[in-house]
């Protein structure tokens, strides 16, 4: 079973604004019956103020589709059309205290229904730019279409690069076989051959670094100060989540840090480190590895 939040369950068990609105003057139909999710949003809009007076939904879909529809109608009521259009799918998911990655498309459907309804009211034609592929990376909810588009746009050749550009594969790594298959197809399509390393690399960024021109070198002390400064900039965000990060040592390209509080041992530790590393590379303009102090190789006496 899915790990639905209490808010999702509440909106599913007791949906708000179910059914079509009487005297609706805006209707948005979106979804795909083949995928098992479809939604009709009806709005009653005040002609003078463009304020949404009432909203109703009819949904064919799973628990989270119904909950997302219910949430959407609650969120738009009382807003003007322009205000309502500012609602993102993430806002809908946040309103529901989150959705499982496989279910994020339900919130996307909600946002699109809103766009379609507003377009209907204004007499515009709504063009759907929505394209959704099979979910590949479950850790970061990245789908097949997104990965292919990114590979094409950036001429990517390795799983590490795909991870760097899309985050796909940056978590548990169990989707790497799927990413390799996509790479093999995309590379074949542009006349190249996909040649993975014998063993998957644990740390990414190697290829990215090799491609980049060597940046201007900082002196040792300045470089460490810069690293410290970047880290300081990242700490408030981590502290907000009850965690923290501390610089322990710098050894060539290896930056050793200590994760404390909620960050240490948390499932998201790897992701947090990945984010820190990405920031470091961007700011320093060189390839570095951010490694937790606990994983630092221990020197063996006499060896």
């Amino acid at each position: 079973m899915w790990d639905y939040s209490e808010t999702v369950k509440e909106h599913f068990y007791n949906p708000k604004n179910a059914g079509a609105v009487a005297e609706a003057n805006a209707v948005g139909d979106v979804g795909s019956i083949s995928c098992g999710d479809a939604l009709r949003l009806t709005l009653k809009v005040d002609a003078d103020t463009e304020i949404i007076l009432d909203a109703g939904f009819q949904t064919f879909g799973c628990g989270s589709a119904i909950a997302s529809s219910s949430a959407l109608t609650e969120m738009v009521k009382g807003k003007t059309l322009d205000q309502a259009l500012e609602i993102s799918n993430q806002d809908i998911a946040d309103f529901l205290d989150g959705l499982p990655p496989e279910k994020m498309h339900c919130s996307v459907m909600g946002r699109e229904a809103l766009q379609a309804a507003v377009a209907d009211y204004r007499g515009e034609e709504w063009v759907d730019d929505h394209e959704e592929g099979a979910l590949v990376c479950k850790c970061f909810a990245i789908d097949d279409v997104m990965i292919r588009d990114t590979i094409k746009a950036n001429n990517l050749t390795t799983v590490e690069e795909v991870t760097n550009y899309t985050k796909a594969g940056g978590g548990c790594s169990s989707c790497h076989e799927g990413i390799e298959n996509i790479l093999a197809e995309e590379l074949a399509a542009r006349g190249e051959t996909f040649t993975p390393g014998a063993v998957g690399k644990k740390e990414g960024f190697v290829n990215l670094a090799e491609k980049e021109a060597a940046p201007a070198k900082l002196t040792g002390v300045k470089r460490i100060l810069k690293i410290q400064e970047i880290l300081e900039g990242l700490r408030p965000a981590l502290q907000a989540d009850g965690g923290d990060v501390e610089l322990m040592d710098v050894e060539g390209k290896n930056i050793y840090v200590k994760l404390v509080g909620a960050c240490s041992g948390c499932q998201m530790a790897a992701m947090t480190l990945g984010g820190v590393q990405q920031k470091m590379i961007e700011e320093l303009g060189e390839f570095v590895k951010v490694i937790p102090e606990s994983e630092r190789p221990v020197e063996i006496a006499g060896a």
């Binding site: 059914g19 139909d29 979804g31 795909s32 019956i33 009709r40 009819q58 064919f60 119904i66 759907d128």
Partner: peptide
């Protein structure tokens, strides 16, 4: 079914697949 766009008063709407044909496929 009360929530479903394919369902009307006490039964499926007429020509359900045509009456409700959402935008994206």
């Amino acid at each position: 079914r009360k929530l479903s766009p394919y369902w009307g008063d006490g039964g499926p709407i007429e020509n359900p697949e045509e009456a409700f044909a959402p935008v994206y496929a």
